[in-house]
Design a protein around this nucleic acid. Structure first.
Length: 408
RNA sequence: GGGGAGAUUCCAGAGCGGCCAAAUGGGACGGACUGUAACUCCGUUGUAGUGAUACUUCGCAGGUUCGAAUCCUGCUCUCCCCA
């Protein structure tokens, strides 16, 4: 029995929050293999440098990588600088604007910065797949393509679904999984990680490695975290993410706004709690504990991870004051200096004031907000966009659910 | 290569010469209720304007008409069937 396998506890930790192992006992095999050959495993994580905002969904995978990193294995981050130009087929059928080299470089850098929230980046190997894909000859490409059948590619649910629904599939999209698989060949990956949506792409790596006479990588897929809307997977383009770099107050609010049905998932996947603590929480819930209590605990825990405990406490207080206090006057208002509201008379219309405070909103939109009863000034609802109000200090203004200002 | 269908506002999807800034549903936003949860109910959902209204929008470019998302021509793209 190997040293590592002796510790079943360690093994359990490595397996926690992994939804799919391919093959099922692959991890054990790889660890034994590594030990036998007296080397460290190469663990691959790929990403598209398109939307470099990492969120709690990514964190699940990154934490898993971190565990392996702590055991001394080699973490190889493959930046899809070439494949980004193809675009991972999403079924959304939106043609992606091609990224320039500069875009890729900038995105990759911000990505790496964010990785450092979880991983020790100095001990990660970061490679760009354009390094080998840019120079790939057509003949080599065809050689590669000959290893894969159409039936296999169409097996990917995304493709078969679109095909059945008569939505377009461009030829180049079919190449994406093959490219990704080729990356695994190039870096000689032992393990590839990703979300469950990456299962197909990752298995491509296994197949291609085998045809190259390599021992195929194993695949570990983490569950997909659902976003703040409670339904769709967390994704920047769906605008439902909680970003790793979000401000504490922002994070707190977003976590408080997730539907209760997501709580067990969040408890399990995004918190630092021990299994025992998680179990305890679930029991409390079952006994009728207000889910809000757990939500707060999760929020505190998460902010503790990505900021620190003091910030977390501050965010909780902020939240309580601004959103949970019952009376208008007690709420927490963001100060806005009167001087900063450049060149205004002492009296303005409500609509103009709103525009100054929320410059990104169109006036038509703000007008609707006012007429819909979403604007309150000094505890009084203002329904006329043209009403004049005096600009004086201590004027308190609420715009919609989330924006609170006080003139100072 | 041949034949047919189609491209509509965030999405799905009606409209097929004026009553169309464009039905309906979803989403989003706001309000009431609440725990920034869910449920339910109500309102809003192109931009600018106090308003009358003006402007931009129905794949792209032209044309017919007093008037076009709606008709015509060309182009681009998609789907289906046949080869």
């Amino acid at each position: 029995m190997s040293e590592i396998l002796k510790s079943s506890q360690k093994m359990n930790a490595l397996k926690e929050n992994v939804e799919i192992f391919l093959p099922e006992n692959g991890l054990e095999q790889k660890l034994e293999q590594a030990e036998r050959e007296n080397r460290k495993l190469v663990i691959k994580l790929g990403f598209d440098p398109t939307a470099p905002d990492l969120h709690l969904g990514h964190a699940i995978v990154l934490k898993k990588l971190k565990q392996f990193q702590d055991l001394g294995h080699r973490i190889v981050i493959v930046i899809g600088s070439f494949t980004a130009r193809i675009g991972d087929p999403t079924g959304k059928n939106k043609s992606r604007p091609p990224l320039s080299k500069e875009d890729v470089a900038v995105n990759a850098q911000t990505y790496v910065n964010q990785l450092s929230k979880i991983l020790d980046v100095s001990r990660c190997e970061i490679v760009y797949n354009s390094d080998w894909l840019d120079t790939l000859q057509l003949s080599e490409m065809i050689q590669l393509l000959s290893k894969v059948t159409v039936a296999q590619i169409m097996h990917r649910t995304d493709f078969s679904k679109r095909f059945q629904e008569n939505t377009p599939i461009a030829m180049h999209e079919l190449f994406y999984p093959i490219m990704q698989g080729f990356d695994s060949v190039k870096i000689q990956a032992d393990i590839e990680m990703g979300g469950t949506d990456q299962l197909f792409n990752c298995t491509m790596g296994r197949q291609l490695q085998e045809t190259e006479g390599m021992s195929p990588q194993i695949v570990m897929c983490m569950p997909l975290l659902r976003g703040t809307d409670g339904h769709e997977k967390m994704s920047k383009s769906l605008n439902n993410i909680i970003g790793l770099t979000d401000e504490p107050n922002e994070m707190f609010g977003k976590i408080m706004s997730i539907p209760d049905t997501l709580l067990p998932d969040y408890l399990q996947l995004v918190t630092d709690f021990s299994q025992a603590e998680k179990q305890e929480w679930l029991e409390k819930l079952a006994q009728g504990e207000n889910p809000m209590t757990l939500k707060k605990a999760i929020a505190l825990n998460v902010i503790g991870q990505y900021h620190n405990e003091a910030e977390a406490m501050k965010a909780q207080e902020f939240f309580a004051q601004r959103f949970q206090s019952k009376t208008f006057q007690e709420k927490n208002f963001t100060p806005v200096s009167l001087q900063e509201l450049e060149g205004i008379e002492s009296e303005v219309t409500v609509i103009d004031l709103c525009k100054l405070l929320l410059q990104n909103e169109s006036k038509a939109n703000l007008k609707r907000l006012i007429e819909g009863g979403g604007v309150t000034v000094n505890d009084e609802k203002v329904l006329g966009a043209q009403e004049k109000i005096k600009l004086e200090t201590a004027t308190k203004i609420k715009l919609g659910k989330r924006h609170y200002f006080e003139l100072v």
